[in-house]
Design a binder for these strands. Sequence first.
RNA 1: GCAGAUAACCGGUCUGUCGCCGUCGUAUUUUUACGGAGGAGGAAAGUCCGGGCAGCACAGAGCGUCCUACUUCUUAACGGGAAGCUGUCCGCAAGGAUGGAGCAGCGCAGAAGAAAAUAACCGCCAACCGUCAGGCUGGUAAGGGUGAGAAGGUGAGGUAAGAGCUCACCGGCCAUGUGGUGACAUAUCGGGCCGUGCGCCUUAGGAGCUGUAAGAUCAUGUAAACCGGCGUCAUGAGGAUGGCUCGUCCCAAUUCGUCGGAGGGUAGAUUGCUAGAGCCUUUUGGUGACAAAUGGCGUAGAUAAAUGACAGACACUUUGCAAAAAGUACAGAACCCGGCUUACAGGUUAUCUGCUUUU
RNA 2: UGGACUAUGGUGUAAUGGUAGCACAACAGGUUUUGGUUCUGUUUGCCCAGGUUCGAAUCCUGGUAGUCCAA
Length: 128
Amino acid sequence: MGAEHNTLSKSERLNKKLLIDRLFAGGNKSLLAFPLRVVYMLVIQEREKASILVSVPKKRFRRAVKRNRAKRQVREAYRKSKSILLRALEERGECMVLAFIWLDDNLYASDVVEEKVKNLLVRIVEKL
RNA sequence: GCAGAUAACCGGUCUGUCGCCGUCGUAUUUUUACGGAGGAGGAAAGUCCGGGCAGCACAGAGCGUCCUACUUCUUAACGGGAAGCUGUCCGCAAGGAUGGAGCAGCGCAGAAGAAAAUAACCGCCAACCGUCAGGCUGGUAAGGGUGAGAAGGUGAGGUAAGAGCUCACCGGCCAUGUGGUGACAUAUCGGGCCGUGCGCCUUAGGAGCUGUAAGAUCAUGUAAACCGGCGUCAUGAGGAUGGCUCGUCCCAAUUCGUCGGAGGGUAGAUUGCUAGAGCCUUUUGGUGACAAAUGGCGUAGAUAAAUGACAGACACUUUGCAAAAAGUACAGAACCCGGCUUACAGGUUAUCUGCUUUU
RNA sequence: UGGACUAUGGUGUAAUGGUAGCACAACAGGUUUUGGUUCUGUUUGCCCAGGUUCGAAUCCUGGUAGUCCAA
């Protein structure tokens, strides 16, 4: 696995209820790049270096088609640019859990979303 | 040609790069890697009906409660569908929308109006009283205004005035005949003949409850819940049968303590999970919904939830002389089916209707 | 995913199918030197669209928005 293989398999998705509860319980850092907010937390040891979760509230888009599109855009953007984060984590030997939350009522073009995700990842790496 | 009606169908295509989820094959101890084949809808939506499937409950009868309600069919079933009957409304038409068990009995109907059902306010007529005004007694449903609804309708005869009081026609009801499986239609006859709406009610048919987050298995683990034994406390005939009654069943139940048995919940994994009242072709039966037979097909299975992102080309629509520009609907499986309802850019086919033109 | 329910002035909340009330708020006027209190008056409503009915906030159907429950 490297920068050449920009995969995003099932094991990189966050689906453990306990971890999600801890992530949103409070006290964790969050960054904002409108229309996205990211919440992240360092964890001790997981199978993957970083696992993510994308959330688009039903209040923002009532129709499932638009919700799915927003989630797919964010996932795609993370898949393309996750090497920024992974390299930094590998240097420090730590693991991380992230949650992306959609905040706006409108859809955006894919390149805009990708730019915002990159921006967030770079800022996370800076703050480590 | 234009404008419509009905029914059925489609609802973008191709190429490249990078990915996601099952599955199959090969390699590999596993991890994993490579390759093959596949991967959202007509509504997947709303969750409005009906069923399958699963768990729990369950001797039975009557009543109650709830649902359905023109007829005949269709189906696993339905409140759906088909074909018909009949009333009302819309449309020049093709057609469309919508209602329809029964009326034996009972109740209600604001305001208005004399009166909302064993009708006399005004009016009309007659007798009596009075001085002319009028009063009083009786008859009268033709006229008046109100109202959603006013005592079958129209005409003629008749009468003091009127009145199905009588007659003709129309409507309605009863009986009989004919046609139809039937709703019903139609013909004849008869007696002078039913106010409207809603509800109760009556009749016929039907309905156990919960839902795949059901349920099953595994692993961790042993509770204050369950079962049985023993002891103990107070009460003294009850408890169960989904609302009530009858009937039936239990003969002990309840409190606390103790011993033994059994294994519940939470988080997780696997399963349930996709071959099913399945889809397509042809033929036959049927007006049709649909049914039967023959042949063929293998067709998503996720779980904080995959089926995608980007680029290019084409196609279609609108604007435009052109170049070109803008746009390409509604919408995302969550156990599975049958319907219903709602949303939907644009397009195709068939039959039919109206108008117009030509032959 | 499965199920239950609600929608009435700016806010909270009533109404048996028959004129939509009440309280607070807002506004205007009176009282007061002024403000408050108080008195009088006014304004603003049945989620949307169909249907049943003589008549619908109420009954029925379909939408929209919101709330709750199971986990």
